[in-house]
Amino acid sequence: MKTYFRLLSFAKPIEKFAIPYVIATLFAIVFNTFLFTLLGPLMQALFLKDSLSKPLPSSGEKSLLDPRELFQAYIDKISTQHGDVYALQIICVVIVVTVFLANFFRYFSQRYMEDLRVHTLLNMRKKVFDNVMNLHVGYFNNERKGDIISKVASDVQVVQFTVTNTLQVVFKEPLQLIFFVAVLLSISVKLTLFSLLVIPVSGFIISKIVKRLKQQATQSHESFAKMIGFLDESLSGIKIIKAFNA
């Protein structure tokens, strides 16, 4: 954990990027969740023609804090006053606006995150470059030039992606999961609990895949370092080789 916070220090001032990212992400999640709740009225309008003209039976007093019930009540009222076709048009317009707003805020959240990535990557590469320049001469005798270039160019970028992606995993994914689960529980508790049964199975499969990907990623970085070394050596002596061949 100390290592992560040490790496996170390269993102300073992180609040410059994190606060707008959190706000944009929160709005994107809210509109995505609201879009999910609109599928019910849309399906009813398309396949249950009488459902809009007849209010759904209520099992109790409707909650004023439930947007799904409020929207359904509004659609029932519109359908009664202006007809099913007009109510369907209202649903489609609301869905289009919701999709636009969700993607609008998602775009800005990704843009702020990308700015944070570039800022963090720049600071990391600058720090690594300064450290390499201050190393003892003996270090360069034991290390190949390709390995050093790979560490500055590729490995630093991998570390940077790990740091910034962790912020997304810690904040965005759990929050979105909470919103979706809350909506699903409000629709059907039994179906929600049944759908959650696949999480342990999928988690086990994903963990196995991640382990294999780690091994392949390590081999890929080693191959990339060798390629950079060979390329540097080839380009360094290309003039002499061409001169002798000429």
Rank of each mutant, 00 (worst) to 15 (best):
K190P: 06
L46M: 13
L231G: 11
F194R: 01
F224M: 07
F140N: 01
K242R: 12
N245H: 12
R6D: 08
I149W: 15
C92A: 14
G203T: 13
I90T: 10
S202L: 12
V96R: 08
H119E: 01
L101H: 08
S53R: 04
L191E: 00
D84Q: 14
R125N: 04
G203H: 13
T166E: 01
G237P: 04
R212K: 11
E114L: 11
Y139E: 05
T166C: 07
E143I: 06
L65A: 15
L70Q: 14
I238D: 00
R111P: 02
V163F: 05
S202Y: 07
T166L: 13
D155T: 11
K77L: 14
V132N: 00
T192H: 01
I78L: 10
F31A: 00
D76W: 13
S236F: 11
S154N: 14
V22F: 10
F179P: 01
K2W: 06
V158H: 02
S202Q: 05
Y86N: 09
S58W: 03
L235C: 11
L196M: 14
Y86S: 04
G203Q: 07
F10N: 02
L213G: 01
V210W: 03
S58M: 12
Q157R: 06
K12E: 09
I241L: 14
F161N: 02
N134I: 11
Q44E: 04
I240H: 07
V210P: 03
L52I: 11
C92W: 08
L177G: 12
Q176E: 09
I78A: 11
I178C: 15
Q176D: 14
S109T: 01
Q81F: 06
I178A: 15
A246V: 09
I206F: 10
V22A: 05
I14A: 03
A102K: 03
A217P: 05
F27E: 01
L121F: 06
L8I: 06
A225M: 04
